[in-house]
């Protein structure tokens, strides 16, 4: 008997087989990044938009290393603290890549890197009106996720915990509640640190996860990329399989009858 095939993850024009999304930052080299992307099985890769360094133009650019036949590119607005800057960055990215996709980040402050919820909603509304497929990075507040859906987001991307913290899913209940409140794809983004974090996010019902530091910051990034691929698949399968109820007390899995000495009962 074959196992049922999972349906693709659909976000705007995207049809993704892999539910693991990967960032392209913080790798030791382009070669290491490519090896990690390949080991992860990811199909959608985030990139950032930055000023060209006019003093140091030599060298290859990021896109020279990412096979566009194999990977789709998701530009982000990382580093934007104002709605206006996020809008400018999204428009520049669309011009650069000829893509309507954007991972919208409107960041509140440089210390926590937590998203500015009101700015994110405002920017989502404007960019969705301009035809962008907005994947909105947000906090794990379930009501905010609903507001973003109403503002026109194509996917919501609640943080598991602060960007780069590696603390995992800080509030599993919020992710589950958020999942139950919206139709949109929900991608757990930020803060995941290791394979069990990814598996948990997927078990909670996330439609996908986005990783960067957890892989790039591992001692062996390529091996961690492979671990994350397995964890994502395992967590998704467990979610679809429907876990057993948890209970306080034991319930024997071996029969309670037919034990030695039963014939001696009076």
């Amino acid at each position: 008997m074959g196992l049922p095939l999972d349906k693709p993850l659909e976000i705007g024009p995207l049809r993704l087989t892999s539910r693991l999304l990967m960032g392209s930052g913080r790798y030791a080299s382009h070669q290491e990044m490519v090896a990690c992307l390949e080991a992860s099985g990811a199909e959608l890769i985030t990139v950032a938009v930055r000023r060209v360094n006019l003093d140091q133009r030599a060298g290859t650019s990021l896109l020279d290393h990412i096979d566009r036949e194999r990977f789709q590119i998701l530009p982000n607005t990382a580093g934007c603290y104002k709605v206006a800057d996020a809008l400018r960055t999204a428009r520049l990215a669309r011009e650069l890549l000829d893509t309507p996709l954007v991972k919208l980040e409107v960041i509140g402050d440089p210390h926590t890197l937590l998203p500015d919820p009101l700015g994110t909603v405002e920017a989502t509304r404007i960019l969705a009106d301009e035809g962008f497929v907005v994947m909105a990075y947000c906090s794990d507040d379930p009501r905010l996720v609903v507001t973003l859906e109403q503002a026109g987001a194509a996917a919501v991307m609640p943080a598991g915990s602060p960007i780069g913290s590696g603390r995992g899913v800080a509030n599993p209940g919020n992710i589950e509640i958020a999942r139950s409140l919206v139709e949109l794809p929900l991608i757990v983004d930020a803060g995941l640190g290791t394979a069990s974090d990814v598996a948990l996010a997927m078990e909670l019902g996330a439609d996908g996860v986005l990783l960067n530091s957890a892989v790039a910051g591992a001692e062996d990034p390529v091996l961690m990329a492979r671990a994350m691929k397995s964890a994502c698949r395992a967590g998704r399968d467990a979610y679809l399989a429907g876990r057993m109820p948890s209970r306080l007390h034991a319930q024997a899995s071996s029969p309670a009858t037919g034990l030695l000495g039963e014939a001696l009962s009076f």
Binding site: R50, R51, S61, L62, L63, A93
Partner: peptide, 10 residues
Amino acid sequence: IEVVTLVGGG
């Protein structure tokens, strides 16, 4: 004038 390109990022 701002001239931008793509770099690695999450």
